[in-house]
């Protein structure tokens, strides 16, 4: 799963430690999520969503799902 956590954090000029405190997790967890080594649980994703004031899908997105949507759109275009 990909995410925009690092970008959103940088836009707000927050450190990993500050974001970790705000989300009540360790700095290591924030780093692992940002680098794509670890996918957060739904409750943690909701906390991030509340903190940034964005919908979950605006922060986290599934590349496989995007590929599927792209394939469906392409096949529809092909048929049309």
């Amino acid at each position: 799963m990909k995410n925009r956590l690092k970008v959103l954090r940088a836009e707000r000029d927050w450190t990993q430690a500050q974001l970790a405190d705000a989300l009540d997790v360790s700095r290591q967890t924030i780093n692992a999520i940002e680098t794509g080594k670890f996918d957060p649980s739904l409750p943690l994703a909701f906390r991030a969503s509340r903190l940034f004031g964005l919908r979950i899908e605006e922060i986290f997105h599934d590349p496989a799902l995007e590929n599927d949507n792209h394939s469906v759109a392409t096949s529809r275009l092909g048929r049309g």
Binding site: R12, W14, A17, Q18, L19, A20, D21, A22, D24, V25, S26
Partner: peptide, 9 residues
């Protein structure tokens, strides 16, 4: 953000 409290740590 609120000041760092390191609540988790």
């Amino acid at each position: 953000l609120k000041p760092i409290e390191h609540v988790y740590q």
